[in-house]
Design a protein around this nucleic acid. Structure first.
Length: 879
RNA sequence: GGGCGAUUAGCUCAGUUGGCUAGAGCACCUCGUUUACACCGAGGGGGUCAAAGGUUCGACUCCUUUAUCGCCCACCA
């Protein structure tokens, strides 16, 4: 017998429990050929960040999966780490420095990187401790960081292999350029913002003619770099002009009028000015027609010499103003329209993107390279194939459409970034013979001429290049480590659907290339966490924005975890608010108190010997054990199928509604069976442990266990513990008590007042005799008479439970009118139902088409319902 | 323009391959400190499952159309 605190205080236990787990070494699985591996690579949080709701929901889900599999006997590896997040981190540090009036250029590359490292070290410490706060049972001994030597080596190795396979090439192409970051961006790193733009209609004169073609543009400053004007070949307005020459205003350059299908007849004037150097679409059209490119804007967003002396050196915006003025002066501006369009901006700093032509490194996604049988497949084809043939399964399934759509439209991926922070590209240029040397390790001299004068490419790689290798670079690749052999491919990738493209797709591309295998078998996509109003959680509305650390402080980690797991389904966004978390805190406390009750009522010897079937005594025992078996079966299935919400809900209901409200209540007094009480509690603690690890572990510790709960094995469904008959009986008892309580309440019987009752029990006589005590206690009855059958009792309210008749002689309280109304209400309720069942069973097509089981069920129900009606009617008539 | 998702009780959400008179939590109403728990217990009210068609013996579930909201992709210069 033991007494624990009246309420669970999470703060008192969480840190020490985590410490106990971590120090025990259980987070670090061994490579064990006798066990099956189960692996999750934790999506590495950015090295800049603090824990937000997205992280905590991810951690709750992944930890639940890992703990479940660990308990099932898998060698479960959850590998944690952090991502250096190139642009984001560099921007952050630059901003911090700028507050002190220092630019990165002031420091120089080396010093600046030292600053970044200092910042990252601190930031990683924060995120590590916050991951621990969430109770994440990840293997810290295998923690990785994308800039670790090992991972960097993997990055260089992959780059080098891809280069020599001609999958990586350097070329001048149009790229998305962020003038603020001073770097290229990948296509999917560009975001769009709604804006109200002005559409300028500008006249271009046809050479040797007084005719004009009017073009419409929102960026008149790019006209200085125009190479042509395109019209749709089917556009009657311009048919005759195709092939003619125009004089480009302000520049005086001659440019052709060309025909291209791409031009939209409806938009603007139907004449499209082409600036191949500063528009991605124009560049593509330009390629088709062999147009020249004139770069008129440079990397800083300033006009170049090609823009003409008057404009050179001006920022694009300034140049625009000047150009408009100049056009007006020459009477070339026809009109200005308002236009709602989308501005492309950098996803990191929201600066307007400047498309321009630049020499960059690209990954070719279309070149056939991966050997697959006797065919060679491109990165893209292979990445599509492994999802299409279900080698990789996406949950929920419908996201594969999104994936295919993106993959099918994927263009070559620009991977070089003009940043300082990141993996520097493993390319060296020989200053003497111009040889390009690409290899994983730094060369000491030129492989061609032997010169030692080598210059390394200053650019770094896109962060997603290294993240793309995450599942295997973290396991030691390119070495053939035992970890890699054993734990890869990983089992599940759990992440938000918002980074399917950035990350999931790239991991698939990179892994199928580098290892010729998939990175993971399943992709579980969670939704975004939103405010109660359904808005995105952002610092701009602190009102409904929730900080997970505050919630942990207030309600405990378990409550927070449960609120992510219950009520959310894969791929769907979820609203989170404080009351929800408080509700789960209540549940955590309920479990605490159920255990408290057990501990107070069980003496030491019950803890000593393990539970066996010999310990089963009462029908209540059999009932709860049966229910427990179904729970184990259901929950295990749900966990296997990633239905965490269902699993959680079922355990919640079992624990609260069946174990606490009925089994424990019935157990009070003489009927308490410590062995069964304890056994059920133990299994419940095991089943819910992956969801709420802290409180369950604390309670487990109180049950005199020598092993930690985290290390226990998952409960197994046992047929020997199924007792169908007893379940039926217990449900009768349940119903009798509920009905009596209902009548009491309806008749306004004071809760404390005890009443008399007579039960005509039919075949349940023995059973009800056995349960007489709890029945009387729970329904507040004194003088309970149980007979097999008997005559109707006057001045008594009667309720029917199956064939059992319960009479409550409430004497003066029984009001004939009230009783009539009550019975009538029951009848009104039940009669239409009986009718629908009848007609259903009379329906020939139902009887011939529906499965046997369904028909039997309906027949049984009709029989029961008819009996009920009979009884109610008899009662009503005799009133 | 293309695609995806959502629409179920006042609120937040479940509802697995079609087969309970559609469920839970919160909120609400009535009552209550009976020796685990007021972070509690007992009882109760509340839904024509967005709309209309269709398939089926049977539709919240499948199909078509529509409406509203949300997201993603492509982009009109």
């Amino acid at each position: 017998m033991k007494e624990i605190e009246k309420a669970y205080e999470a703060k008192m236990y969480e840190d020490s429990i985590y410490k106990m787990w971590e120090e025990s070494g259980i987070f670090s699985p061994k490579v064990d050929p006798n066990k099956k591996p189960f692996t999750i690579s934790m999506p590495p949080p950015n090295a800049t960040g603090v824990l937000h709701l997205g992280h905590s929901s991810m951690l709750a889900l992944e930890d639940a999966m890992i703990r479940y599999k660990r308990m099932q006997g898998f060698s479960a590896l959850w590998l944690p780490g952090t991502d250096h997040a190139g642009i984001a981190t560099q921007n952050r540090v630059e901003k911090n420095l700028l507050a002190k009036g220092i630019t990165r250029q002031d420091l120089g590359r080396e010093k600046f990187l030292e600053e970044v490292d200092k910042f990252v070290e601190k930031s990683r410490g924060t995120i590590r401790s916050q991951i621990r706060k969430m109770g994440a049972s990840c293997d810290w001994s295998r923690e990785r960081y994308t800039l670790d030597e090992g991972l960097s080596r993997a990055v260089r190795e992959v780059f080098s292999r891809m280069y020599h396979d001609e999958l990586i090439y350097r070329g001048s192409r149009i790229v998305n350029w962020c003038p603020r970051c001073g770097s290229t961006l990948a296509d999917d790193e560009v975001e769009y913002q709604e804006q109200n733009a002005k559409l300028y209609h500008i006249k271009y004169q046809v050479k040797d003619s007084d005719k004009f073609v009017v073009v419409a543009t929102v960026r008149p400053e790019t006209m200085l770099g125009d190479s042509a004007v395109a019209v749709n070949p089917s556009d009657d307005r311009y048919k005759d002009l195709i092939g003619k020459i125009l004089i480009l205003p302000l520049q005086g350059r001659e440019i052709p009028i060309i025909a291209d299908e791409h031009v939209d007849l409806e938009f603007g004037t139907g004449a499209l000015k082409l600036t191949p150097a500063h528009s991605i679409v124009d560049w593509e059209i330009g390629k088709k027609h062999g147009l020249k490119e004139f770069q008129v804007i440079d990397e800083e967003g300033k006009m170049t010499k090609s823009a003409g002396e008057k404009y050179a050196g001006l920022f694009a915006k300034e140049a625009q103003k000047q150009i408009i003025e100049d056009l007006i002066e020459q009477d070339l501006l026809v009109k200005t329209e308002e236009l709602a369009n989308k501005l492309s901006v950098c996803y990191r700093c929201k600066t307007a993107i400047e498309p321009l032509i630049s020499k960059q490194w690209f990954v070719s996604v279309d070149k056939p390279i991966i050997q697959d049988g006797d065919k060679k497949k491109s990165l893209k084809e292979k990445a599509i194939e492994v999802v299409r043939n279900k080698e990789i399964e996406i949950i929920p399934e419908h996201f594969d459409k999104t994936y295919f759509n993106w993959m099918e439209n994927l263009h070559d991926w620009c991977i070089s970034r003009q940043l300082w922070f990141g993996h520097q590209i493993p390319v060296w240029y020989c200053d003497d013979c111009s040889e390009v040397i690409v290899q994983a390790d730094e060369p000491s001299k030129c492989t061609k001429c032997g010169s030692e004068k080598l210059t390394r490419d200053p650019d770094v790689l896109d962060t997603w290049f290294s993240s793309g290798l995450w599942t295997f670079s973290t396991l030691g690749w390119p070495e053939r480590t035992t970890d890699l052999e054993y734990f890869h491919p990983t089992s599940v990738l759990e992440t938000g659907y918002d980074i399917i493209f950035f990350w999931v797709a790239r991991m698939i591309l990179m892994t199928t290339y580098a290892l010729n295998t998939i990175p993971f078998e399943k992709v579980y996509l969670h939704g975004l966490i939103r405010t109660r109003e359904g808005k995105k959680m952002s610092k701009s509305n602190p009102e409904s924005c929730i900080d997970p650390l505050d919630m942990i402080d207030k309600y405990g980690t378990d409550a927070l975890r449960l609120s992510f797991l219950i009520g959310s389904t894969p791929g769907n966004d979820m609203r989170l608010y404080e009351e929800k978390i408080a509700g789960y805190r209540n549940f955590v406390n309920k479990i605490w108190n159920a255990s408290r009750f057990a501990l107070m009522n069980i003496d030491n010897e019950a803890f000593e010997s393990p539970f066996t079937t010999d310990d089963i005594i009462s029908r209540a025992d059999k009932w709860i054990l049966t229910k427990l078996q179904y729970l184990i079966k259901d929950v295990t299935e749900d966990m296997e199928n990633f239905r965490f919400s269902d699993a959680g809900t079922k355990i919640y209901n079992f624990t609260w509604c069946e174990y606490c409200d009925w089994y424990l209540e019935i157990s009070k007094g003489k009927h308490l069976n410590p062995k069964v009480l304890l056994h059920v509690l133990e299994d419940v603690l095991k089943l819910i442990h992956p969801f709420i690890p802290f409180v369950t572990e604390v309670l487990w510790g109180n049950l005199n266990k020598d092993k930690m709960l985290i290390a226990e094995s998952w409960p197994v469904f046992s047929k020997d513990l199924l007792f169908v008959e007893e379940v039926e009986e217990m449900e009768i008892l349940h119903q009798i008590i509920s009905d009596i309580r209902s009548v009491r309440s309806e008749y306004g019987v004071e809760p404390g007042k005890k009443i008399h009752a007579t039960i005509y029990s039919g075949k349940y006589k023995n059973f009800l005799e056995e349960k007489k005590e709890p029945l009387m206690r729970m329904a507040r009855i004194e003088n309970l008479t149980i007979l097999e059958s008997g005559d109707k009792i006057d001045h008594a309210v009667c309720v029917f439970v199956g064939n059992v008749e319960v009479y409550l002689p409430l004497q003066e309280l029984v009001d004939v009118e009230k009783e009539r109304a009550r019975l009538q209400k029951e009848l009104d309720n039940i009669k239409p139902f009986a009718k629908s069942l009848e007609s259903k069973l009379k329906n020939q097509s139902f009887v011939s088409n529906a499965p046997e089981a369904v028909i039997e069920k309906e027949k049984k129900r009709l029989f029961e319902v008819q009996q009920q009606i009979e009884k109610f009617e008899k009662q009503l008539n005799e009133l």
